[in-house]
Amino acid sequence: MEKKSIFILQIASIVYIWIFVIAVDVWILSLLNVAKKLNDAINASVAIGILAIPLFITIAGILTYVFVGLQKNKV
């Protein structure tokens, strides 16, 4: 496989990771919205959201940092 195709595949994998993380975060936010609408234990839902949303973003951030960093620092 050509270098260019591999590079495109690598970029696509970063995009895929972010799509996954954003989808999970949007899902959590929608569940928060449901809890708010139904006025049902909103505090518990907010607590879970506060923990989970940054967690997924951090994981994706670390991967992006490594991928971009390794590509940038090639000799």
């Binding site: 595949l9 670390i62 390794l70 620092n73």
Partner: peptide, 30 residues
């Protein structure tokens, strides 16, 4: 192609090592 894709251009330079080490350290604690 699989190893080229998954290695992300790793050449073992000092800067690359630092980046990887920092990322592993953060993950380790998380």
């Amino acid at each position: 192609w699989l190893y080229q894709f998954l290695s992300w251009g790793w050449q073992g330079t000092e800067r690359q090592k630092k980046i990887l080490e920092r990322a592993i350290n953060i993950l380790m604690v998380m």
